[in-house]
């Protein structure tokens, strides 16, 4: 199996508080990984650190992607190398339509000129498969979108940009049951043996359509246990109490 992402001893602080405290993770091509953990454990911090969000300072560790050290790369370079993150709280960008945004992003990521007509058809196809109102594509980016529409828009971007590796940070939260199913199918549509997915979630619902390889429990900035879907189901039933002993 070919390695896609390797994280070694990752330590991150936000403002003056250390959040990640030595995190290790290896993801191979073709795999689906899941991270679960209590609120404030550092899941979003991990996603933001991988993408070099300047608000999150790396104090130790190394991140390798596709054989290249990306620890100190800038966010846009990392994105162009093929890492995509679906945001827990997506941004609104007034004055730019979803379509024009996607066109710009696709152009930046591929370095190629994007032709409007073909690309539009492609986007409309994805929107349909995500059960999105096609009019959203012409509206200002996320402005006035419902919480669920914003999350679907994240998945729409994932499909349009076809990255090599995606991090889905609680894409399922705020979605109704039908929408979760649709998004789960969307992820399945994207997934192949050359890419990989990291799902951050509090529930197993979104995993139903996916073949999950590993489930990690993240508590207080570290991965404390790794298992299979069984582990996710156990957490869903019993919570994190049993794993919290090393806390503080």
């Amino acid at each position: 199996m070919e390695e896609l992402l390797r994280i070694e001893n990752l330590q991150t602080k936000v403002l003056d508080k250390q959040i990640l405290k030595g995190l290790d993770l290896v993801i191979n091509k073709g795999e689906v990984h899941v991270i679960m953990g209590p609120n404030g454990a550092g899941k979003s911090t991990l996603a933001n650190t991988i993408l070099s969000n300047p608000e999150y300072t790396k104090i130790a560790g190394k991140i390798t992607f596709d054989g290249k050290d990306i620890t100190n790369k800038k966010t846009d370079e990392i994105a162009r190398m093929g890492i995509f993150m679906s945001f827990q709280t997506p941004e609104e960008i007034p004055g730019i339509s979803v379509f024009n945004f996607l066109k710009t992003a696709k152009n930046k990521v591929t370095g190629k000129t994007i032709y409007g007509v073909d690309f539009k058809k492609e986007i409309e196809g994805y929107a349909q498969s995500l059960d999105m109102n096609p009019q959203l594509i012409g509206r200002d980016f996320n402005v006035g979108f419902s919480g669920g529409e914003k999350k679907k828009n994240e998945i729409l971007q994932m499909l349009a940009l076809s990255p090599k590796f995606v991090i889905l940070d609680e894409t399922d939260s705020g979605l109704d049951v039908d929408a979760i199913r649709v998004v789960s199918k969307g992820i399945d549509l994207y997934k192949n043996e050359n890419n990989a997915v990291l799902v951050i979630t509090h529930s197993t619902k979104i995993l139903e359509n996916l073949k999950v390889d590993h489930v990690h429990i993240l508590i207080d900035g570290k991965i404390v246990k790794t298992g299979t879907m069984e582990l996710a189901k156990e957490i869903e039933k019993n919570g994190y109490e049993a794993y919290k002993n090393g806390k503080d």
């Binding site: 608000e55 966010t75 162009r80 997506p90 945004f101 930046k108």
Partner: peptide, 10 residues
């Protein structure tokens, strides 16, 4: 940051 995560330079 959001836009940069979509491949746009600062």
């Amino acid at each position: 940051f959001y836009l940069m995560s979509r491949g746009l330079s600062e």
